[in-house]
Design a protein around this nucleic acid. Structure first.
Lengths: 222, 222
DNA sequence: GTCTATATTTTGATAGAC
DNA sequence: GTCTATCAAAATATAGAC
């Protein structure tokens, strides 16, 4: 975190910030190095002075996004707290990332849609840490007899999915709300209680709706 | 649905199929017209014979994706069924789209990340229909006294979000599962009961976790 | 309806002066 | 460290023959 080369860091950091905005808004292919440089108030050549190429710049940003998320989960979840609270802490950690880092949601969603093309070992390691944090919560909840066994990935999808969609859709909904008010009316404050309620309820098994899904079983892994 | 010009439709349809795959896998900017033409076994110029340009082709596919989803919801949800079942029918309609149309999830997620750049009135109308279907279910559930008032958009995010993430992440998880088994182990069969359980539980208000979220209230609409 | 050939722009990347 | 100038490749789109 401490800057070794204050001179170098200044422009490098500006490029990272500008690139994060550009990549999040337009994706890897849609992002243009000229635009990144302009947004950073620097020349295009500076990108290639600080980074090997466009892909390397993207990877560095992607790793930072997931590292920050993994750190947030690790810092916010208290293993000694009641398991219900741990779930809320996990949800809140993700929500805080989504709210505080405008690029977080878009970059995660894009990476999925792209088929994880840019996921290298450093990025993978951070994704692992996020999922591991949640796995620990569930394991402790099973230990205390509060939760039933559920695949951590399933819980992660149901928690992270809605948060990412809400955050990423904010610009779209703002634009669309002028045409149809139904799209506008939601913030994290509305969503989080609902997510927590659903997640904890499903983990405790309060509602048992695991009935016939025969009609879909043939296509479950497409 | 019936083809007027059998000759014309053949190549046009092949282009639409090829383009859907290309756009879903690489996004609008990442997709290349040369690749679309090659995948359709046609010449690049044929794209401009059948469509005004790349953007028009994309818009037509996007409208089809959402129209199909809206139709599925309208067809599958039975307003006279018990409200719990209606929720399951909605979930299943979305899940069937995600499972049966490989491009469905990626295109929706990308459109969000892109800030809805390509959403024109026809597309918007179909998005409206999906949300309206869910709004109706909730309204009927409130009428019968089974559900409490919740913003339809919030419910849609919690239902659709996880399904899209699961479907879109399938290729990524397949690739990553060789490195870490925790990413692989989930299909729609695992996810759907969990989503239904969570959604119905939250709609009925079985678990009340709507406690203090003061720490986030300041950043809820960022 | 379908293809070849080509015009035009855009874009990622580099060489080299300062 | 930063910029100017420029290259080479790629990509969208069109004109026109068949």
């Amino acid at each position: 975190m401490v800057s070794h080369d204050a001179d170098k860091m200044a422009s490098r950091e500006r490029l990272l910030v500008a690139a994060a905005a550009e990549f999040a808004a337009r994706g890897f292919a849609g992002a243009k190095v000229d635009r990144i440089a302009a947004k950073a108030g620097l020349n295009k050549a500076m990108i290639y002075y600080h980074f090997r190429n466009k892909a390397a710049l993207y990877r560095e940003i992607l790793a930072g996004v997931f590292r920050s998320a993994a750190n947030a989960v690790a810092a916010e979840v208290r293993p000694e707290a009641p398991v219900d609270d741990q779930v809320r802490q996990f949800v809140r950690a993700i929500a805080r990332e989504a709210a505080g880092r405008p690029h977080f949601a878009s970059m995660w969603l894009r990476e999925l849609a792209d088929g994880g093309t840019h996921i290298d070992p450093p990025v993978l390691e951070q994704m692992r840490r996020v999922l591991a944090g949640l796995s620990g919560i569930i394991a402790r909840g099973i230990d205390t007899g509060d939760f039933r066994p559920v695949q951590p990935l399933v819980v992660q999808l149901t928690v992270v999915g809605p948060i990412l969609m809400l955050a990423a859709s904010a610009p779209t909904r703002d634009r669309l709300s002028r045409l149809d008010g139904a799209f506008a009316s939601a913030g994290l404050d509305d969503l989080l209680p609902y997510i927590e309620c659903g997640a904890i309820g499903a983990l405790r098994g309060l509602t048992d709706t695991a009935v016939s899904h025969a009609s879909l079983s043939g296509r479950s892994r497409t």
